[in-house]
Every structure is written in structure tokens, then in C-alpha cells.
Amino acid sequence: MELALINKLRKLNRIVALIVGIGLLGMATFVVADIALRQIHASFGGTEELAGYAMALVSSWGMAYALLELGHIRIDLLRARTQGMLRALFDVFSMIVMTGVIATIAVKCWPVVARAVENGSRANTPLATPLAWVQIPWFAGWIWFATMASLVTLAAISLMLRGQASKTETFIGAFAEQDSLK
């Protein structure tokens, strides 16, 4: 049951990551088009500013994908010398701590968004972008990450309580079995 949930989350986050990736590709296209336009003395303007927003969105929405693909770096020196239950304890403990920190981040991101909404803050640039437009989706990305981390942690704890600790390695271990780079 837990593994089925993890599989669903993986599929879901692959789709999210793909959308983020396509957005990134779109940003690259936009920058290149702007460079081309400049050669004929025209320009969209504001590429640097938009690139900053793109980067914030890429980092908040991509995090959960990296989590489910075991992409976030962990130091494996002690853990590698353990096995079975003990190793699973390392993994579950690490996931609990991570979930706590990510949830804290997500909660603390709210005041930033709230200020932008209250003040109607706009970027101090020629575009004068209303910051809420970019900060709300950015904040949602961190909420998404926190939610995914919580679900993964719950799945791992549940497996552990049912005496199947070794099965957690496939989704909260230190490294992916097969790295996505081939």
C-alpha cells in the first residue's frame, strides 16, 4: 500500500518536474529570442527580472521531484556501515528532520507573500511586476514540497511499524538505485 502511494507520488512529481523543465526551456528560448531581437535594436525587456522569478519557481517546484528520486545529497559514511533496521532508522530519522525543516520553511514563506499582497508590492524595475503574482506560486511550491515530504515520511513510518523496514530503502535511501543520468 505504502509503495503504491510512493509510486503514485513519483509519477505525479515527474509530471510536475517536466512542466517545470518545459518552463525552464521556455525561459531559455525567451532569453535567446531577446538576444536576437537586440541585434535589430528591439527587445522584450526585463529578461533578467523574469529569469530571477523563473529560478525561484524552478527551485521551489523541483524540490519534491528531487526528493522522490533520492536526489538530495546525504553523507553516507556512518549509515553505509549499518544494515536492516538500523539503516532504516537512519533514513526515517533523516526524513523526519527534513520534513520538519521543510514545513518550517513553507510556513515562514507565508509572511513574505502576505506582505506582497497587503502592500500591493511591485518589483522596483521597469516592469514593476506585482510580486504577489510570482510569490504565490513560489509559496505553493514550498507547500507542495512540505506535503510530499510528509507523505513520504508517513509511508516510511507506516512500513516500519508493520515490520517491513527494509522496504523503505527504495524511497528514502541515500542514493537512487539507478541514477537518472545514464
Binding site: 531559455a28 527580472e49 529560478m55 525561484a56 520553511i105 507565508w110 513574505v112 510569490q135 514550498w142
Partner: peptide, 29 residues
């Protein structure tokens, strides 16, 4: 200081300079 956590997360990630990282990674991929 932790009250500034959200602000730090926003200002350190919304950086146009850093977008060179995914671009160069994508180039390599």
C-alpha cells in the same frame, strides 16, 4: 533571525545569476 527565513529563501532563490546553473546543466544533459 528565523523570522527572516522566508525572505532569505525568496531572495536567495529568485536570482537571475543562478539561472545559469540549470542552463549549464541542461546544456550538459
Amino acid at each position: 533571525l528565523s523570522r527572516a527565513l522566508g525572505n532569505m529563501v525568496w531572495s536567495s532563490s529568485s536570482s537571475a545569476t543562478l539561472i545559469a546553473i540549470p542552463f549549464f546543466v541542461l546544456l550538459g544533459e
